[in-house]
């Protein structure tokens, strides 16, 4: 490679050729031992027998998965029927995360578009404004949201004093509160990739469409959206995946009716009521769902690049 040419995204500079593995060794050791090995260990634990005060007995068992999917009655001797409790919790989590993703998209797309069409000097300030809240501690943001929307919180007090409402809105402990919390937690993940896509958008496409008498909204729907779609899909994944396993928003803003995967898993490892193999099995199922989503995304991405 000619000296001076910028290093490409693929990392084509080979100035330190041959030392790749030496330089990557610490990463492999740390992530390999303390993340990859633990995930494999967790997979093993999901096939073990539970110990009653937390922990496991080293005996192979399919009980954890069996308990997740099937109901065998109180004494375990009835013919198995599908058990809806845990599948229902997973389904609700997917639903909640999906709604939060759609909300993020509906608010995030116009915001990203607006920022990307500012003057180049002011774009970074707008982006900075959108990302600051993300860097504030997630727990503190969630607690702040809880404080704001409580029945006796400032939002309700304010609306009551204006006589807009006669009784508190009752937002807390609802599905809506959880979605609001998830939206609030992950919105910047939607804005940033869409912004990156819109910034590269070639406006001569819009001009061509306008010359052919397309209306503003037709241009948005038929020209802009297909072009910036990779950014939108990336944003949706970045919001959906962490929302699915979120713990703080459902735990602090939701109630018993809004129980999600994160809380289900957490409960298995707290106190004496815990069931480690079951928690490990639920984690494995969550991990499988997430990896499937990411795989489908990666395959589409490769196809789009090949085109």
């Amino acid at each position: 490679m000619a000296a001076g040419a910028p290093v490409g995204a693929g990392g084509t500079s080979n100035i330190y050729k041959g030392s790749g593995w030496k330089l990557l060794f610490p990463s492999w050791v740390i992530i390999g031992i303390f993340l990859l090995a633990p995930v494999l260990m967790m997979a093993v634990y999901s096939f073990l027998t539970k110990e009653f005060r937390g922990g496991v007995i080293w005996e192979f068992s399919l009980n954890a998965y069996d308990q997740f999917f099937f109901d065998r009655g109180l004494f375990g001797d009835e013919p198995p029927t599908l058990e809806w409790t845990y599948i229902g919790i997973f389904w609700r989590s997917i639903w909640q995360a999906g709604l939060a993703t759609i909300t993020c998209l509906l608010i995030g797309f116009p915001t990203a578009w607006f920022i990307a069409t500012r003057k180049p000097e002011s774009r970074s300030i707008w982006l900075f404004l959108v990302t600051i809240p993300y860097w504030v501690n997630l727990l503190i943001r969630t607690v702040s949201m809880k404080f704001l929307i409580r029945d006796t919180g400032p939002l309700n007090e304010f609306l009551l004093s204006l006589h807009v409402i006669n009784e508190p809105l009752g937002l807390i402990n609802t599905n809506f509160a959880v979605q609001l919390g998830l939206f609030y937690s992950y919105l910047p993940f939607m804005v940033l990739p869409i912004y990156a896509a819109v910034e590269r958008y070639d406006f001569s496409l819009s001009e061509a469409a306008a010359d052919l008498y397309a209306s503003t909204w037709t241009i948005l729907w038929l020209v802009i959206l297909p072009v910036v779609r990779p950014g939108i899909i990336a944003g949706c994944i970045l919001v959906f995946v962490p929302s699915l396993g979120a713990f703080l928003a459902p735990d602090l803003l939701g109630g018993a009716k809004t129980f999600m995967i994160g809380s289900l898993i957490e409960e298995q490892f707290k106190g004496n009521a815990g069931n480690w193999p079951f928690g490990a099995a639920a984690s494995m199922i969550l991990l499988t769902i997430v990896m499937c989503v990411l795989l489908v995304y990666a395959r589409n991405q490769n196809k789009a690049e090949a085109r």
Binding site: P38, M42, I265, A280
Partner: peptide, 23 residues
């Protein structure tokens, strides 16, 4: 190696938490 470095971003946080505790 690139996938490995980004693995902590791909695995859901609650799964990382469980895996670490178990390990």
């Amino acid at each position: 190696s690139f996938a490995l470095i980004n693995l902590p971003l791909m695995v859901p946080e609650v799964v990382t938490a469980v895996a670490s505790l178990v390990f």
